[in-house]
């Protein structure tokens, strides 16, 4: 009995933390269906104002276009980042050499460079090439990250080299070895990397805000941030917009929670 009692504080602590974690999200979901007054009245039950909130939101902001730009940008970043970083990780591990180790160390240093320190020159660079307001400018700086290269490199360690040798003897080209043998075996690493990259890209705010100066090309985080800036905030509409902006990442998270957690920690084993 005492043994069971001793567990009570632990469960209590977990329950409180779980409740506090989920509470604000529950409130966000519920508030999306309530009027602004009900939101401020702290109504904790779903209401009947979802359609009205949606109509008001679409009337104020071009949600469809923001969703579109967010999607292009996030999917584009994810696809290119996975391609570039996995090829690099593969190269580091399969054609291993001292010089590459040194290069890797230099690249890892880039992980310590705060984005703030590169933001202004990056803006100038893209301005020079007339690429302000383009999705390409949003995507390009996010493609090659030392973190992803490291993730693929570490995971490639368990990739059996004998297979590569055998494939070479069979006359497969290096590109074919990569595409037909490496990619399928590393499926779980790709999944983890995709989740992390997509979420980071979808939620990115500062860089799009710098490089997209025309609201026609705004992304979802920019759109909801602009909603707040209005003189009178309709909280029901705001919470609906926040919910829409969070839905894609939340769904992906709930489906692929495992790979997300594995990917986050996988690079540091």
């Amino acid at each position: 009995m005492t043994k069971k009692l001793r567990r009570v504080p632990g469960y209590l602590f977990l329950a409180i933390c779980a409740l506090l974690s989920v509470g604000p999200l529950y409130f966000m979901v519920v508030s999306a269906t309530n009027t602004s007054q009900d939101v401020l009245g702290s109504r904790m039950l779903p209401g009947a104002n979802l359609v009205a909130n949606f109509t008001a939101l679409v009337g104020q902001q071009d949600v469809a276009s923001a969703m579109w730009f967010s999607t292009i940008q996030a999917v584009g970043t994810t696809v290119l980042a996975l391609l570039v970083c996995s090829i690099a990780g593969y190269g580091f591990e399969v054609f291993h050499s001292r010089g590459k180790d040194r290069l890797m160390n230099v690249l890892l240093l880039a992980m310590m460079i705060p984005f703030a320190a590169t933001m202004i020159p990056l803006f100038q660079l893209f301005a020079q090439f007339g690429m302000i307001n383009s999705s390409f400018a949003v995507i390009l700086p996010a493609i090659a990250t030392p973190f992803l290269v490291m993730l693929f490199r570490q995971s490639s360690r368990s990739f059996p080299h004998e297979i590569v040798e055998a494939a070479r003897i069979d006359g497969l080209s290096e590109l074919n070895i990569f595409a037909r043998i490496y990619v399928p075996t590393m499926r779980s690493t790709y999944a983890a990397a995709a989740v992390i990259t997509f979420m980071a890209a979808w939620n990115n705010f500062l860089w799009p805000k710098v490089i997209i100066v025309n609201n026609t090309y705004q992304t979802m985080p920019m759109l909801i941030s602009n909603l707040r800036a209005g003189y009178v905030t309709d909280y029901g509409v705001l919470m609906l917009a926040v919910l829409l902006a969070s839905l894609p990442t939340m769904v992906i998270f709930l489906i692929l929670q495992r790979s997300f957690a594995e990917g986050m920690t996988g690079a540091i084993k």
Partner: peptide, 15 residues
């Protein structure tokens, strides 16, 4: 407890 990580920084700031 892990769920808040799925929400963007702008989104949770506004909530």
């Amino acid at each position: 407890i892990f769920l808040p990580c799925a929400v963007g920084l702008v989104s949770y700031s506004l909530v």
